[in-house]
C-alpha cells in the first residue's frame, strides 16, 4: 500500500488518541505539600520536561515513549519533552540514581532555570526500588534533589504518568496569588 493511501485512510478513521485521565488527586496533594513553602509562579498551561535516566532498567523510558505517541498524546495538554535543561521547567528522573550518574543529574538540574520542579518516576526513583542499598546507588532522587512529585509503579503506566503530570500542570498553572493563570 502506498504512503498516500495509508495517510488518507488514517485521516478518514479519525484520531487514535484516547481520552485523557483526570489529574491525580494524590499527586495534587503531594505537590501542595511540597510547594507549600516555596514561591509558586504561574506558567500558563504549558510545561517543558527534561528527562534524565539515572540508572533505570529502561522500562520507564519505554512508557515515556508511549505517552509521547499518538495514543496518549501528551502534547495536547501543553506538555512537551525538550532536549536542553535550559528550556525545561520539570526534571523527570527515572532510576535509583546510580552514583555514576549523580553528577550528571545534579548538573542537569543546576542548568535549569527557576522555577523548576522535580518528578521522581517509578519505584526506583522513589526509594531505589529493587536496587536500593549497596555501593552503587543513592537509592532515590530525594537523596540528591528536592522532589516535588513521585509517580509510583514499576514502571508507572502511561495513564499513571499522564495523570501525575496533569496534576503538576494544574499546580504549576496556579499563580502565586492562588489564581489559575489561564483563567
Amino acid at each position: 500500500m502506498s504512503l498516500a493511501r495509508l495517510l488518507f485512510r488514517e485521516l478518514l478513521r479519525g484520531p487514535r488518541t484516547i481520552e485523557g485521565p483526570l489529574p491525580d488527586p494524590l499527586g495534587i496533594e503531594q505537590l501542595g505539600r511540597a510547594l507549600g513553602e516555596r514561591a509558586r509562579a504561574g506558567l500558563g498551561r504549558s510545561l517543558r520536561i527534561r528527562e534524565v535516566d539515572a540508572g533505570s532498567c529502561n522500562g520507564c523510558e519505554l512508557e515515556i515513549q508511549a505517552v509521547n505517541g499518538p495514543v496518549y498524546d501528551l502534547e495536547r495538554f501543553g506538555i512537551h519533552f525538550v532536549a536542553s535543561p535550559r528550556h525545561a521547567d520539570v526534571l523527570l528522573v527515572t532510576g535509583p540514581v546510580s552514583r555514576n550518574m549523580a553528577e550528571a543529574l545534579r548538573r542537569t538540574y543546576d542548568a535549569m532555570p527557576s522555577p523548576k520542579w522535580v518528578v521522581a518516576m517509578g519505584d526506583c526513583a522513589a526509594d531505589g526500588g529493587c536496587f536500593a542499598g549497596g555501593y552503587a546507588v543513592l537509592g532515590g532522587v530525594h537523596h540528591l534533589l528536592p522532589v516535588d512529585l513521585t509517580i509510583p509503579g514499576c514502571p508507572p503506566t502511561p495513564l499513571n504518568l499522564l495523570s501525575g503530570l496533569l496534576a503538576l500542570l494544574e499546580v504549576a498553572a496556579v499563580g502565586s496569588d492562588g489564581q489559575a493563570s489561564g483563567a
Partner: peptide, 8 residues
Amino acid sequence: YTHKGVEG
C-alpha cells in the same frame, strides 16, 4: 553510568 550493582 547506569551501573547499579546488580550482581552484588
